[in-house]
Simulated scan of single mutants.
Amino acid sequence: MQITVVGLGKMGLNITKQMLDKGHQVNGFDINTSVRESFSHANLTYLDDLAVLKDASDKNLVLLLLPAGPITQGMIAQLAGTLKSGDTIVDFANAQYQVSIEAANQLAAVGIDYHDCGLSGGVHGARYGACMMLGGKETASKDLLALLSSLCVANGFQAYEGIGSGHYLKMVHNGIEYGMMQALAEGLELLKEQSHYQYDLAEVTGNWEFGSIIESALLSNIHAELAKDKELSSFTNQVAASGEAKWMIQEALEEEVAVPTIALSLMKRNASLKALSFSNQALSAMRYNFGGHKEF
């Protein structure tokens, strides 16, 4: 296989570096050419135009590490007219699984194999060993399975049957992540605001990191930040949502499965983006109207 990574941002470049460490020859492509100035390697070839893949003597394996949505969809449309029958695309975008199914059908019409793949572990995972959930197991070659497995931590790779199954799993994975993060954040806020004891939150999270039931990568993440700054003063109180939790909640409604914790964690994020919540103003107005509670 001739391996090409399209999208050399934080995740794409780090997966590329991991493959280079393992001795692979890799092509890299990104519309932002500044990456070429920041990193070079004897086994890495930067491409100026993906059209050269049409003339490759080996089968092409293209790893897409682009943002979900129009950018990835546009690249898939471009590759549909560029790659050869028998080539393979693995899409790591956090896309809706229905979009992945549409992409697979589009590419199958020209003989190109498509796999969706959920990727977890962040930048560190991409560089040193991730967790991956590959969709479309029934059409995956042994070489592809071996390559992706080698980029994961031990037992961190699994292939699943059905196009879209990898991105469906990543959707649910990220929804669970929202709920876990919210629970940790709320607990830490209570510890910070309560009036009984003086807790060093870096010390507390460091304590909980070892042997506690809530020991986790997320706990380690917040401990690392609290150890640098106990007030987290470089962070705002606004928290964006990237879409997966919303899709999961929509799916849960369709399937009539209750996911209240994840739904509330998403609503909490959405509320954080409001500079001034009108609903809070409405609550204050009602309290004033019936009880004379003046809050203005």
Rank of each mutant, 00 (worst) to 15 (best):
I3D: 05
V6A: 15
G7S: 04
K10G: 04
M11P: 04
N14M: 09
K22P: 08
G23Y: 11
H24P: 09
D30T: 01
F39V: 08
F39Q: 11
H41P: 11
N43S: 10
D48Y: 12
V52H: 01
S57K: 14
K59V: 01
L63G: 06
L63H: 10
L65D: 00
P67V: 02
A68C: 10
I71T: 04
M75Y: 02
L79Q: 05
G86C: 05
T88P: 04
D91I: 01
D91W: 11
N94T: 02
Q96M: 12
Q96T: 05
S100M: 10
A103Y: 12
A103Q: 15
A104N: 12
L107R: 13
D116C: 06
D116F: 09
C117Y: 08
G118K: 02
G118H: 04
S120I: 00
A130I: 01
C131F: 03
L134R: 00
G135A: 09
G136K: 09
K137C: 12
E138S: 02
A146R: 14
L147V: 06
L148M: 12
G156D: 05
F157V: 00
Q158C: 15
H167N: 11
L169F: 07
G179D: 04
E186M: 11
E189F: 11
L190W: 15
Y197D: 00
Y197L: 14
A202S: 15
T205A: 14
I213A: 14
I214F: 11
E215I: 09
S220W: 07
L226W: 05
A227V: 04
K228M: 11
S233C: 04
S233D: 05
S234W: 04
T236G: 13
V239H: 09
A240V: 11
W247T: 03
Q250M: 08
E255Y: 13
V257P: 08
V257G: 08
V257L: 15
A258S: 15
T261Q: 07
R269W: 04
L273A: 02
L276H: 10
S277I: 00
Q281L: 10
A285F: 12
Y288W: 03
Y288M: 01
Y288N: 00
G292P: 02
G292Y: 02
K294E: 12
